[in-house]
Amino acid sequence: EVYKVKIKIERVLPNGEKVEEEITIEVEGMSEEELLALARELAAEPGVRIKEIEIEKLPP
């Protein structure tokens, strides 16, 4: 199964400015739980906050 994972994050820059970013990846052969863990890892940097995680199962 192939999933499209869209992660919206908010990053706080050293000057205090907040910037929103969106990361989209396609992943194959992982469960939804593994995808959530991967998304959290991607956003685990200091000053980064996850705003939204969207997981979509793509048709075969």
Rank of each mutant, 00 (worst) to 15 (best):
E52H: 14
A43R: 04
K51F: 07
E28A: 11
R49E: 13
L13T: 08
P60Y: 00
E41I: 13
L35G: 13
K51M: 15
E10K: 01
E34Y: 15
K18V: 09
E26A: 08
I55H: 02
L38R: 09
K8T: 14
A37M: 09
P14G: 09
A44D: 06
K4L: 08
K18P: 06
E32Y: 07
Y3T: 14
V19I: 12
R11S: 02
K57E: 04
R49S: 05
M30E: 06
P46K: 10
E52L: 10
G16A: 02
I55M: 06
E52I: 09
V2F: 11
G16W: 02
G16H: 03
E26G: 05
I25E: 01
K18Q: 04
E52T: 14
E33M: 10
E28I: 09
I25M: 15
L42W: 07
P60R: 06
I9T: 03
V12L: 10
L38A: 03
K4D: 01
K4H: 11
A44P: 05
L42Y: 14
E22S: 07
P59H: 14
I9Q: 01
V27H: 05
I23P: 00
M30H: 10
L58P: 11
L35M: 13
L35T: 12
P46W: 12
V2M: 15
L13K: 08
E20Q: 14
I9F: 08
E54T: 14
K57G: 08
I53T: 01
A37I: 13
R40C: 03
E1K: 04
R49N: 14
G47C: 04
P59I: 15
I55T: 02
I55W: 06
E33S: 13
L42S: 05
E54V: 15
E33V: 13
G47H: 11
P46F: 14
I23L: 07
V12R: 08
L36Y: 14
E52K: 08
E28N: 12
A39N: 01
V12Y: 09
E28D: 09
I9M: 07
G29H: 10
E26N: 07
E54Y: 15
G16V: 00
I53K: 00
L42N: 02
E41A: 15
K4M: 07
V27P: 01
P59L: 11
R40K: 05
A43C: 05
N15G: 11
E32F: 11
K6I: 14
E1V: 13
E28Y: 10
E26V: 11
E17T: 15
E28P: 08
E17K: 10
L36A: 08
L42F: 04
V2R: 14
E45S: 15
L58S: 10
L58T: 11
R11G: 00
E56C: 05
I50S: 00
E32A: 12
M30Q: 08
M30L: 06
E54C: 07
I25W: 13
S31R: 08
K6H: 06
N15W: 10
N15A: 02
I9L: 08
E56R: 13
I7Q: 00
V2P: 05
E20V: 11
S31H: 06
E1F: 04
I55A: 02
E52N: 13
K8E: 01
E17L: 09
I50G: 00
P14C: 06
E1R: 04
I9C: 01
V27S: 06
A44L: 12
E41R: 13
T24Q: 06
V2K: 15
I50F: 03
I7G: 00
V2A: 10
G29V: 03
L38Y: 12
A37V: 14
E1T: 11
K6N: 09
M30F: 10
G47E: 06
E17A: 10
G29A: 13
E52S: 08
L13S: 10
K8S: 09
Y3V: 15
K6A: 04
E26K: 08
I55F: 09
E45V: 09
R11P: 00
R40G: 11
K6Y: 07
G47W: 01
E33N: 13
G47Y: 01
I50K: 00
L35Y: 05
L36S: 07
E10C: 04
L13F: 13
K4I: 07
E21C: 11
K8L: 08
A44F: 12
I23H: 06
L42I: 11
A43V: 15
A39C: 07
A37R: 11
L13A: 06
K8P: 00
M30N: 11
S31L: 07
E21W: 15
P46T: 12
K18S: 10
T24K: 09
A44C: 05
L38D: 00
V5P: 00
I7A: 01
R11M: 02
I23T: 02
V5I: 07
K51H: 04
G16E: 01
R49I: 12
E26W: 10
E22C: 07
K18W: 14
E26S: 15
I23C: 04
M30C: 03
E10H: 04
N15E: 03
L36E: 07
S31E: 05
P60I: 06
E20R: 05
P14T: 07
E41Y: 10
V48G: 04
E34Q: 15
A37T: 13
E21V: 12
V2C: 04
I25A: 02
E10P: 00
G29K: 11
E20F: 06
I23D: 00
R11Y: 04
T24M: 10
P46C: 05
K51P: 00
E54G: 08
G29T: 06
K4G: 03
A43M: 14
A39G: 05
V48P: 00
K18L: 12
E33A: 10
N15C: 05
P46M: 08
E52P: 00
I23K: 02
I55L: 10
K18T: 13
I55V: 06
L13D: 03
G47A: 07
I55K: 03
I53M: 07
A43T: 13
E54M: 15
A39E: 03
L36N: 10
E52M: 11
M30G: 10
E21F: 12
K6P: 00
E41G: 12
K51A: 06
S31D: 07
K8H: 09
R49W: 04
R11N: 01
E21N: 07
I50Q: 00
I9S: 01
E21Y: 15
K57I: 12
E17N: 10
G47S: 09
L13G: 09
I55Q: 01
K51W: 09
A39L: 12
P59C: 08
I9P: 00
